[in-house]
Amino acid sequence: MKNHKHIVTIGVLLALSLIFAYLEMILPSFLPNPAFKIGLSQIPILLTFYLFDLKSSAAVSTGKVLMMSLLFGYFLTYIFFVNLSGAIFSILFIGLSQQLKFSIPMTSLMSSLGHNLGQFIIIGFTLGWNIALFYLPVIIVFSVLFGLIIGLISQSLLNKIEKRI
C-alpha cells in the first residue's frame, strides 16, 4: 500500500460500490429476468481502476462480494461462489482491455461481459450448460447495452474528477 490517502479513497469507493449493490437489490427490476442487474456497482470499480491501478480495483471488486455476502448472510454458500467467479472474471477482462488499449465504455462492456461469463462458468458446471446457453443471447445484448451506459457514466465522472485534482 502506498499511502494513507490511497487506502482511504479505496475504502470510500468500496462503500459506494456496496451502496449501489444494495440499491440494485432492493429496487424492482425492470428487466425481463429479475436476476439481471444494471451494474451500477461497477461504476466505483471502474473509477478505482482509472484512478489507481488494476490491483486496487480487484481489491474493491472482491471486497464488494465478500462484504455483501457477510451483510446478507450468504458467505461461502453457492451464490457467494457464483458472485466471486463473476468478480474475478470481470477484473481479468478489465486487465485484458487494458492490454488491448480499449476506451472507457469498451472496458466497461468487457468487464460486464466478463462478469456474466464468470457466473455462467460456475452455473454451467453445477446446473448444466443448456440453462447458461438459453440465456446467452439476452445476456450479450444487455451486457453490451448496460456496459456501454455504465462506461459512459464513468467516463463523464472521471472527466469531472480529473478537473478537480
Partner: peptide, 19 residues
Amino acid sequence: FIKINKKEILIVIGLLILA
C-alpha cells in the same frame, strides 16, 4: 481518454451478431 475507435465498434457489432 482513448476515443472509441473502429476496432471497438467492430467487436460490438460482432457480439450483437453472435447474440
